[in-house]
C-alpha cells in the first residue's frame, strides 16, 4: 500500500510539473556531462601515463668530444668512466634502476638514419656527430629525482634528462582542460541544485493541500516528504543517465571510431571507462537532489 501510494504520488507530481522536471533533467544532463568529461580527461591522462611512462627512460648523455659542461672538460667520455657509471648504477641505484642500456654513437646513428633516411635538414651526419648515452629504465618513473642527483656531475656525464618532461606540456593541456570542464561543471551543478530546489518547492506548493491533510492525520515526516525527494532524485538520475549516454556516444564516435583510427599509437579512453564513471555520475545526481531536498523540504513540508 505504502509503496503503491508513494509511486502514484510521484507519478502525479512529475506529471503536474512536467516542464520543470524536463528542465531539471536537462540541466543535470549538461552539468553531469561536464563532470563526466572531466573524469574522462583524467582517465585519459592516466592511460597516457601508464602507456608512455613505460616506454620512456632516463637518458644519461655522456660527454661528446666538444662540450662546454664542466664535467666534460677532459673531453669525450672514456670507457672507464662509462664502466664507473655503470658500477654506480649497479650499487647506489640498484633499487631505482631496473635496466641499463648503453647506446653507443653507432646505435644512436642507426636510430637517426632510421628516422631521417635522407639526412636531417640537408646535412649529412655521421656516427661521430652522435652522442653516446646510457638509457635507464626505472622501476618507478617517479624516482627520477634520485637518479638525477646521483648521476649528475659525475665525470663523463654531460647531462641527465628525464624523457617524461617531453609529455609535460601535453599533460598540462589535458589538466587545464579538466579544470575548465570541472569549473563549468561546478557552475552547472549549482544551477542544477537551484533548479531542483525550485522544482521541489513548486511541487510542494502545488500539493500543499495534500501535505497539509497528511500532516493533520499524522503521516510521518518521511512519508510526507518521500514523494518530493523521489521526484527530485528521479529527475536528477534521468539527467545522469542522459549524461552517461551522451558521453558514451561521444567516446564511441569521436574516440573509438575516429581518433583511434587516425592516431592509433595512443591509448584512448573507451566506452568501458564511460560505463565505469556512470555510477559516479548517478551518485552525484542523487547527491544534488539530496542537497536541494534538504534545503527545501524542511521549509515547505514541515510537520
Amino acid at each position: 500500500m505504502r509503496l503503491q501510494f508513494v509511486v502514484s504520488e510521484v507519478v502525479s507530481g512529475l506529471r503536474r510539473n512536467t516542464t520543470m522536471v524536463v528542465a531539471v533533467v536537462l540541466v543535470t544532463f549538461v552539468s553531469l556531462t561536464f563532470v563526466g568529461s572531466a573524469a574522462l580527461l583524467q582517465a585519459q591522462i592516466g592511460k597516457l601515463k601508464d602507456d608512455w611512462y613505460d616506454l620512456v627512460e632516463v637518458s644519461v648523455f655522456l660527454c661528446p668530444t666538444s662540450s662546454l659542461a664542466p664535467t666534460c672538460a677532459a673531453g669525450e667520455a672514456t670507457d672507464e668512466q662509462i664502466e664507473a657509471l655503470q658500477a654506480v648504477i649497479g650499487t647506489e641505484l640498484s633499487g631505482e634502476v631496473q635496466q641499463v642500456y648503453v647506446e653507443s654513437k653507432e646505435d644512436a646513428f642507426a636510430d637517426f638514419e632510421e628516422r631521417y633516411p635522407d639526412g636531417y635538414q640537408g646535412t649529412q651526419l655521421t656516427a661521430e656527430d652522435m652522442q653516446a648515452s646510457l638509457r635507464l629504465k626505472l622501476a618507478d618513473p617517479g624516482q627520477y629525482g634520485v637518479v638525477s642527483d646521483v648521476l649528475s656531475g659525475r665525470a663523463g656525464v654531460e647531462v641527465v634528462e628525464d624523457q617524461r618532461a617531453i609529455f609535460d606540456p601535453l599533460f598540462l593541456a589535458l589538466n587545464r582542460a579538466t579544470l575548465l570542464s570541472a569549473g563549468l561543471a561546478a557552475v552547472m551543478l549549482l544551477a542544477a541544485v537551484l533548479l531542483i530546489t525550485t522544482t521541489i518547492r513548486l511541487s510542494a506548493v502545488s500539493r500543499r493541500k495534500e501535505t497539509e491533510i497528511m500532516r493533520l492525520v499524522g503521516a510521518s515526516n518521511l512519508f510526507v516528504q518521500l514523494p518530493f525527494l523521489l521526484e527530485g532524485a528521479l529527475a536528477a538520475v534521468a539527467g545522469s543517465v542522459l549524461a552517461s549516454g551522451g558521453l558514451w556516444l561521444a567516446v564511441r564516435f569521436l574516440v573509438t571510431d575516429w581518433l583511434e583510427q587516425s592516431v592509433s599509437w595512443v591509448a584512448y579512453v573507451s566506452e568501458a571507462d564511460v560505463l565505469a564513471i556512470a555510477p559516479l555520475l548517478m551518485v552525484v545526481a542523487v547527491g544534488l537532489a539530496a542537497i536541494a531536498s534538504f534545503f527545501t523540504l524542511n521549509r515547505y513540508t514541515r510537520i
Binding site: M1, F5, V217, G218, A219, S220, F223
Partner: peptide, 14 residues
C-alpha cells in the same frame, strides 16, 4: 481513504 493511506494502513483495512 487518503487519511489511512498516508499513515500506511494496509489495503484491506482501508
Amino acid at each position: 481513504a487518503f487519511a489511512l493511506q498516508v499513515i500506511g494502513k494496509p489495503r484491506h483495512v482501508i
